[in-house]
């Protein structure tokens, strides 16, 4: 049961990680907050840092849940699933991702 929880959290963090990395790109930032929304360099840096940390955290959780040889596979595949999900959300339900911008976007 603890393993299932770890894996769920790992999936969640890979999703938020990919989401933040997507927001750090101007084109997607504007998709969410309008064409003229400015993405400052410092915001972009923060988003990038949050994104990579989140992905790293997801990796750590994978390694806690499974033995290393298995965890590598799970993590790499989770990244693919998360990136696909974020891309599809950006295509059809982009506003859902505003939640990831927290207060930075307000």
């Amino acid at each position: 049961m603890a393993e299932a929880l770890m894996l769920c959290l790992a999936a969640l963090f890979s999703l938020t990680g990919m989401g933040w990395l997507a927001l750090s790109l101007e084109v997607h930032w504007r998709q969410l907050f309008g064409r003229r929304a400015e993405l400052s360099a410092s915001t972009a840096n923060w988003l990038r840092l949050a994104g990579w940390s989140s992905l790293l955290l997801s990796a750590v959780l994978c390694f806690i849940a499974d033995r290393p040889s298995m965890a590598v596979l799970v993590w790499v595949m989770l990244l693919a699933a998360a990136a696909t999900t974020i891309a599809l959300l950006l295509a059809w339900r982009a506003h859902w991702l505003r939640i990831l911008a927290l207060r930075i976007g307000a």
Partner: peptide
């Protein structure tokens, strides 16, 4: 890793996703 006789249902579904991608 290719023949996957291990017990890990999440990874199994992720492999299906990979194949479909």
């Amino acid at each position: 890793l290719h023949l996957q006789h291990f017990e890990h249902w999440l990874l199994r579904w992720l492999y299906v996703l990979g194949g479909l991608l």
